[in-house]
């Protein structure tokens, strides 16, 4: 049996595709097995039962929420708490060795834990405090926790 040239090329391409698929699949399996060896970010838990939004949503959109809130607060004086950076910091603070909250200079800081992993630079803490205010006995403390219980 004689194949013409184009049929041969078609077969060759199909074989090549199949071969590469096989390589990818085996690689993926291998990757799955060695998953534990891949470094994953150690994300510290916040206080309370859950965040102001679902975890999936927060992972993808926290920056948008913060950015929106930042403009509302800065430009218009809207000071709702739900998406405020200050409340993130208050709730997610990580205790250091001396039992006070660590600042962003510590790799354990909740923002850095992920941002270091993803190699995404944060510009927030050039100006904002990265630790909860120690003497901030604000009358609004704990509002989010109450709100979420409702």
């Amino acid at each position: 049996m004689r194949l013409n040239r184009s049929a041969m090329i078609t077969i060759a391409v199909a074989l090549a595709l199949f071969a590469s698929l096989a390589v990818v699949v085996t690689a993926a399996e291998k990757n799955d097995r060695t998953m534990s060896e891949v470094p994953v970010p150690a994300i510290p838990q916040g206080q309370g039962e859950r965040c102001v939004e679902d975890t999936d949503f927060m992972r993808r959109n926290h920056m948008t929420l913060l950015m929106h809130q930042r403009d509302d607060t800065m430009l218009q004086g809207i000071r709702t708490k739900q998406y405020s950076l200050k409340e993130c910091v208050n709730c997610h603070a990580v205790q250091g060795k001396d039992e006070s909250a660590v600042s962003v200079s510590d790799p354990k800081h909740f923002c850095r834990a992920c941002h270091d992993y993803a190699a995404v630079k944060i510009d927030c803490f050039e100006c904002h405090s990265s630790r909860p205010e120690i003497d901030a006995a604000s009358p609004h403390d704990g509002l989010i926790a109450e709100m979420l219980k409702e």
Binding site: K86, V89, S103, S105, E126, C127, H128, S129, R131, P132, E133, A136
Partner: peptide, 15 residues
């Protein structure tokens, strides 16, 4: 460079 700014009065180098 500044550190531990007041949470209600953010301020930072270069601005």
């Amino acid at each position: 460079t500044l550190e531990d700014q007041k949470s209600y009065a953010p301020r930072g180098k270069g601005t």
